[in-house]
Design a protein around this nucleic acid. Structure first.
Lengths: 218, 218
DNA sequence: CGTCCTCCTTTTGTATATAATTTCGGCAAA
DNA sequence: TTTGCCGAAATTATATACAAAAGGAGGACG
């Protein structure tokens, strides 16, 4: 048994934190939006104390910003900061993949494959985001480093606030799905260097797509 | 002006957080030690509320662990977890260095050099840790990605809880200081691949030294 | 002699209350 | 119209109060 089977009953603070994070990631609270403590306390049926503690935690996670006497806002990134998140993705996820590949077993490949197949069936862009994360996560889990995985997940959470539907394919380039297939193939072949290179290119492509997208929306 | 000139006067919560973190990193509170809220509140001259909020933040940072109705402890890592921190160092710091080198200017080299010289003058192992961090930080700062730098700093904070005096050199290997010199030289030469490889080896050596050290202390 | 139960103490978790700060509307003056 | 300055209302920050849970000493029972 690991050390993580502690909490018997979740505290109010943890409940609020979990629900609030889900709301933020689901877009219920938009980036930049003010989060009023009393409102949240009402919504979650607690006093403001657990709300404030949850906000402090989410602040450290990078999902909200707290200013002195001015409360909390959902984070809102500048273009440069979103690019930065992609650099962090490259750093963390490429390392995780590198360490994961030697540990992969058949069921990991099967699971990844299954997700890709399901991916193609879904038509709702909102679900693509979910599938995309599932696929990537599946590739990294075998590295067996929970803290690294948790950093990746936290960073990805911030990313997903801004990279809602990442459909875009630069003209003539491969689609993200095609890239997924290629990455999985390299993993299967045990070709660490190739897989990592492909992953870096994959994330880099998202980064570039974002740069274009953001440049347009001025 | 950036976005970080907000806080006019720091709140009690932030003050407590900063001081408590300093205490933890300085070893005033040892890993595994219980942190009593009332005690901390007294020490910092506040009520327990700011203390609790600071603890929530530090929990998210990974410096303390909170258990339900059982309060906070300074984190205490298993051997495997310390190894994991080094993997995260490799992921984050190698990427930062890679992105930093193209942006380095003369004053960056000068500063790094200055730190290395000072390094040799100090005899107190406690100061080595500080110098070591300063040197690494100096190399990464030119990447100009504040979030990445903040992740690196947070991770390094956890590392420094357990890697007090990293003097050890495996027999026949280079000392950490010699490795520092080599890394800096590669940076000066603009040789990104070599510098990153050296850095990875450098961190890996620390990792290996830790593995030996921990194996002994059983 | 050891184990388990109970009660008391300590400590944590959350609600309520109070203080301090910001925000905003209105009014006056330029 | 615009600017700037009150002052009330809203909102946040912190303290205090109370409730709930954990920890520990002592005693009953095997």
């Amino acid at each position: 048994m690991t050390e993580l089977d502690n909490q018997q009953r979740p505290s109010a603070t943890e409940t609020v934190r979990k629900l609030l994070r889900a709301d933020i990631l689901a877009g219920t609270f938009a980036p930049g939006e003010q989060l009023r403590q009393e409102e949240l306390a009402d919504k979650f049926g607690t006093s403001r104390i657990p709300v404030r503690e949850a906000l402090r935690h989410l602040e450290a996670e990078g999902l909200v910003t707290l200013l002195n006497n001015r409360g909390a806002k959902v984070v809102s990134f500048t273009s440069a900061e979103v690019i930065e998140l992609m650099e962090i993705r490259i750093a963390l996820e490429c390392r995780a993949l590198r360490l994961a590949i030697p540990n992969m077993i058949q069921s990991d490949f099967d699971e990844a494959k299954r997700i890709l197949v399901e991916y193609d069936k879904k038509s709702d862009p909102a679900q693509w985001a979910e599938m995309n994360w599932k696929f990537h996560e599946t590739l990294y889990i075998p590295c067996n480093l929970p803290r690294l995985l948790s950093l990746i997940e936290g960073n990805y959470g911030q990313v997903s606030l801004f990279v809602r539907a990442q459909v875009s394919m630069a003209s003539g380039k491969k689609t993200p799905q095609e890239e997924h297939v290629d990455i999985l193939k390299a993993c299967r072949a045990g070709n660490v260097e190739k897989a990592v290179d492909l992953l870096e290119a994959h994330i880099s492509n998202t980064k570039k797509a974002l740069m274009v997208q953001r440049r347009r929306s001025r």
